[in-house]
């Protein structure tokens, strides 16, 4: 498992760059992760998604899918495609320091 430096934190990542250790992430890191993939500012709407993903992962042990974010997190799917363009499921997982969602829907 590679180690890398993100915002002066030494963190574990997988081969693609997704963080693998839940506890190595903090909110300061999220801004750098977002900037890495072209999201320059994290708004309150972004944070609502990220905090839901973190809490849901802590509870369920897996990354929420888009549908779960919509149905349980009550954040409309359309909004997710605006906040995290094109590939919201993977982008929001990356910023939240979580693995890619494993579920199909």
């Amino acid at each position: 498992m590679p180690m890398t430096m993100i915002a002066d934190h030494e963190v574990h990542v997988d081969d693609e760059g997704f963080m693998t250790e839940y506890d190595e992430w903090d909110e300061e890191l999220a801004s750098t992760l977002a900037a890495n993939i072209g999201i320059d500012e994290l708004t309150d709407e972004h944070w609502k998604v990220i905090r839901f993903l973190r809490a849901d992962f802590a509870d369920k042990g897996e990354t929420a899918t888009l549908r779960r974010v919509a149905t349980v997190g009550e954040i409309p799917t359309k909004d997710l495609f605006v906040l995290f363009p094109k590939k919201p499921a993977r982008k929001m997982a990356y910023i939240a320091g979580l693995p890619k969602p494993a579920g199909c829907i």
């Binding site: 590679p2 180690m3 890398t4 430096m5 993100i6 002066d8 990542v13 081969d15 693609e16 760059g17 997704f18 890495n36 993939i37 072209g38 363009p85 094109k86 590939k87 993977r90 982008k91 990356y94």
Partner: peptide, 13 residues
């Protein structure tokens, strides 16, 4: 200078 950051390729281009 830090170790190179691995950033996933989301194929945005």
């Amino acid at each position: 200078e830090t170790a190179p950051t691995i950033v996933p390729d989301f194929g945005d281009d």
